[in-house]
Amino acid sequence: MRNVSLYPGFLSLVSISLTACVTINIYFPAAAAEKAADKIIEEVWQLDDAEKNGQGAEETHSDNQPTY
């Protein structure tokens, strides 16, 4: 059977991807949390674009940062 030779590969793939997720997510993603907080606060306080000028530039930069 062709599939049999794929099993070890898939098993190691699953175990590696599980460990990868755990190691990466242990660190608190501060930049993403800040963005999420801003989004919620802007909705709750109903801030217009005029009132949050300056915030936008900061946010787009954090997107491109190669974090971990």
């Binding site: 590696i16 991807s17 660190y27 999420a36």
Partner: peptide, 27 residues
């Protein structure tokens, strides 16, 4: 057959960091 499966595994493993990175950076 073995070479083929190794190749597939390699490609998947190389693309894995990209997927997990995107996942880890989002809230």
């Amino acid at each position: 057959n073995k070479l083929f499966s190794c190749l597939i595994l390699l490609v998947i493993l190389l693309s894995l960091p990209l997927a997990t990175h995107a996942r880890g950076a989002n809230i």
